Simulated scan of single mutants.
Amino acid sequence: MPRKTKNGEPFDQMDYIKKWGKENMATISGRYKKEFVQAFKDACKTLGIRQSDVYRKAMQAVIDEAEKSSQE
């Protein structure tokens, strides 16, 4: 039996995920030389880490540093 919303309409899981993503997520991008990007991808594969984890850690480090410098 299909799920229903509170008003009795059919629940569309994909629509919900898309809407949630638009409201809560953002994309960042950058352009670098192909050789540099390929070296990064290869390094991530060698280390067994995801590229997005590297981005997140770097971004968090910058945020932490900014918060630290603003408290001084």
Rank of each mutant, 00 (worst) to 15 (best):
T5K: 14
I49R: 05
C44I: 00
M14L: 04
V37I: 14
K19Y: 11
Q38H: 06
R31P: 01
M25H: 02
K6I: 09
A39N: 13
S70D: 13
T5S: 06
D15H: 05
V54D: 01
G30S: 03
P2N: 11
R50D: 13
K6G: 12
I63G: 03
R50Q: 12
A61V: 10
E9P: 00
L47E: 15
R31E: 03
M59W: 05
I49K: 05
Y16H: 06
K33H: 06
Q60L: 11
Q60E: 14
S69Q: 13
S29F: 03
I28Y: 05
D15M: 08
N24E: 00
M59V: 09
F40C: 11
I17P: 01
G8R: 05
Q71D: 08
E67A: 10
K34T: 14
R31K: 06
Q60Y: 02
V54Y: 02
K68I: 02
I28W: 01
V54W: 01
T27S: 11
W20D: 05
V37A: 06
A61F: 08
K45S: 13
K34L: 14
I49V: 07
F36I: 14
F40S: 08
A66S: 04
D64K: 07
T46F: 12
R3L: 13
E67Q: 08
K45I: 10
F40L: 10
A58V: 09
I17S: 04
D12V: 09
V54A: 08
F36Y: 10
Q71I: 03
K22G: 08
E35I: 07
I28M: 06
K19W: 08
S69V: 05
R56M: 02
P2G: 07
R50N: 15
S52D: 15
R56A: 03
S70Q: 13
G30P: 00
R31W: 00
A61E: 14
A61I: 09
A58L: 12
A66E: 06
M59P: 00
M59A: 15
K33D: 15
Y32E: 07
S29W: 03
Q38D: 11
M59N: 03
I17W: 00
I28C: 07
D42H: 04
A39G: 07
T27H: 12
K41S: 12
I28V: 10
N24A: 01
C44L: 07
T5R: 11
M59C: 14
K68S: 05
I49N: 00
Q13F: 15
G48I: 09
S69N: 14
S29P: 01
D15R: 08
Q51C: 03
W20V: 08
E23Q: 04
Y32R: 03
M1P: 03
R31N: 13
Q71A: 12
S29G: 13
K34W: 09
S52R: 12
T5L: 13
R3K: 15
S70M: 15
P2S: 13
K57Y: 07
E72R: 14
D42E: 10
M25N: 01
G48F: 01
D12N: 08
M1G: 12
S70Y: 09
N24C: 01
K57V: 09
